[in-house]
Simulated assay, not measured.
Amino acid sequence: MRVLILNADYPRFVAWLYQRNPELAGAPYAAQMAARNASLFGVADFYSRNFAAAGHVATDIHVNNPWMQAAWAREHGFAVEQPPAPGSDAPRQAIPNWLQRGIAPFKPVLRPLARKVGLSPRLDAEAEKILLAQIEEFRPDLVLNQDVFHVDTRLARRIKGIGHPILIGQVGIVPSRGEDWSAYDLMISQLFQVVRTFRNAGVRSEVLHLAFEPDILDVLPPAPERSIDISFVGAVSADHQQRVAQLEAVARTYDLKLYGSGLQTLPASSPLHRCYQGEVWGVEMYQVLRASRVTLNSHIDMAGREAGNMRLFEATGVGSFLLTDAKDNLPSLFEPGREVAVWTSVEDCLSEIKAALDDEDRRQAIARAGQARTMAQHTYRQRVQTLLRLAAELPARR
């Protein structure tokens, strides 16, 4: 089977990658893909390498990377202009934080309108043309679309028309209202509330959790010393109000190191400003986790009572002690108190941090057990096996 994985990267990550490698934007497509994968950011090539290990032909496309896509187009005879140098685009006007907080609960309803007026990410006509040409050339039997915003339902139907591949979408947030998802044979998500939304819309949907790639451990630099008492890597925004409250309480008591985005959305009085260490991506992010005695986790507000974000698997996968928020389904992923530590309130979080910092043996035991659980049950190899089983169970393609 020929498997194609579609993905999109955070623009800030793409700018970071190309600004630190000034010659990369003009390099051949294969060289740009190799550099992107070597960064280890996000899922990198973890799905495609495990599909290949299972005996399939698999490849990735990063649909919103203009330099990589332009390189492919030139190499295949398309007349395209070289995109502007990374970082040269004028930054968009930030939405005021008070407005972000106000609209956060209504995002599933507002996304279609935002797309119509150009406020939601989407591919332009040339980017769509290049992507469709790539699909025509590769002729996949299965397409895993991990970005249902850039590759929207309209474009998904066009992809479906190229050889009629099995089309699987992966999404971790409640989908936009009013969309026609019928082009998809299957939608997967780490959150059951998302799965339920798709099922209610008449689309087959299943829970499939995120994962860790064990090969990361073979290519990371040597593990650093545990020089960071407490770290958090991730975003702080209007969508993470519980997280912000937790982190601010930790920052008032402990030497928290904060890495991520969204700090500009917080008031100047927030103690998180003095904790901020900048953004870290891929390899650097893993090294921060490995250097931390305690690394914190808090899910996005819309996750509700469900656990499943990437930090669960990244932190445990590299052998870090993870202190995460209690969720109803967490025991199905990790055993609380043995494989991960758990907090139920801000006060409880502060107590758990103190207990962890005071007891190195317990901290290390939990970190080892968490890593063992991830290696046994939460790798991309297992997720690919599940995807192949789900694909085999789908009705015959029309």
Rank of each mutant, 00 (worst) to 15 (best):
M1Y: 06
R2P: 10
L6T: 04
A8N: 08
D9H: 15
P11C: 07
Y18Q: 01
N21V: 03
A25M: 05
G26I: 00
P28W: 07
A30Y: 03
A34Q: 09
A38M: 00
F41W: 15
F41A: 09
Y47K: 06
D60E: 14
N65E: 13
W67A: 09
Q69F: 09
A71S: 11
W72G: 06
A73Y: 06
A73P: 04
A73H: 08
R74A: 10
F78L: 12
P86R: 00
D89H: 08
P91T: 15
K107C: 05
P108L: 02
R111S: 02
A114D: 09
E128T: 09
K129F: 08
Q134V: 08
E137Y: 09
D147V: 09
F149P: 00
L155Y: 01
R157P: 02
W181H: 01
A183T: 06
L186V: 03
S189H: 03
A201L: 12
R204Y: 03
H209S: 07
P214K: 05
D218R: 01
V219F: 01
A223Y: 02
V233E: 05
A235C: 04
D239H: 13
R243G: 04
A245N: 13
R252N: 11
D255K: 12
G260N: 01
C275T: 07
E279P: 01
G282T: 04
Q287F: 11
Q287N: 04
S292A: 06
E306R: 08
E314N: 09
G317Y: 10
V318F: 06
S320A: 15
D328H: 12
C349N: 15
A356C: 13
L357I: 02
H378V: 03
V384T: 11
L388T: 00
